[in-house]
């Protein structure tokens, strides 16, 4: 039995919390300052890309550990 799915689950848990924090604070910032939506959404996407990368790296490390 392989434990790789559990590892993926834990990685997804942390990354989901991070993405949620980024999205939530970006949303509240946007609602407070609607004129800054353009800048905020750009920064939000950059932050999300870097957080997402952590999960992808976990997937690759996990895959290479399984094989």
């Amino acid at each position: 039995m392989s434990y790789a799915p559990f590892a993926l689950g834990f990685a997804a848990l942390g990354v989901a919390i991070g993405l949620g924090l980024i999205g939530a604070s970006a949303m509240s910032g946007m609602s407070r300052q609607p004129e800054a939506i353009g800048k905020l959404s750009t920064q939000m996407l950059i932050g999300m890309a870097f957080v997402e990368l952590v999960f992808l790296l976990t997937v690759f490390v996990g895959l290479s550990a399984v094989k």
């Binding site: 992808l56 790296l57 690759f60």
Partner: peptide, 13 residues
């Protein structure tokens, strides 16, 4: 590396 892995991971994933 991060640019390529991000794109690959998302599409292949």
């Amino acid at each position: 590396v991060s640019l390529s892995l991000r794109l690959y991971g998302n599409i292949h994933g």
